[in-house]
Amino acid sequence: MLLSVDRVSKTYAGGRPVLREVSLTLDAGQTLALTGESGSGKSTLLNLIGALDVADAGEIRLGDTAYAGLDDAGRAALRRDRVALVFQQFNLIPSLTAARNLEFHARLAGRRDAAWLDRLAERLGLGDLLSRHPEDLSGGQQQRVAIGRALAVRPALLLADEPTGNLDETASTSVLDLMLELVRESGTALLLVTHSEAIAARLDRRAHLAGGRIA
């Protein structure tokens, strides 16, 4: 078992609880779609798993690492080395070229693999786009760079939060196809937040969040 989420709760200051004793597991190489209404806590759960935020209660483990014992630096190291994130907003670094963005995370993690990068670039169809800056790329192209950047680090777990939410249908389909293909090829586990039934149906498993609980 790669990821285990055990009775995790999260409440933001002054608000109602966003997650209530959520539990979830994911095996290596497995893909899981996390669905739910707007505000159901999907993104919050993803952020907790991505060590971007800290749970109030419950336990998250990635492999043999228990999140509860991590300080800021430990969480940063986890994000750097073992999980990778793809967001709806792409969140590329605007001052760097597509090529630099693509390799950025891998280099941060000290795991730059030129062959793998070339292959990713080729598979993602980035060839001519690599020298461009993000602002010169379309949304679909930016998201392909973002996916490539996440996979380049060869993470154990890829977290994707509505990765096609900002794309039109054609782009959305091709980006999703590519992502699923590459995830399977590289044996990366995927946790994908979506509200689309069609997308959810293409993943190995699905979990539905409603009112802060797994339904």
């Binding site: 991505g50 800021d72 605007p94 001052s95 995370h105 941060l108």
Partner: peptide, 16 residues
């Protein structure tokens, strides 16, 4: 913030 947040997400601490 939008410039530094992705780096943070990729594993840089806020202090750094």
């Amino acid at each position: 913030l939008p410039q530094v947040a992705p780096l943070w997400a990729m594993g840089l601490t806020r202090a750094r």
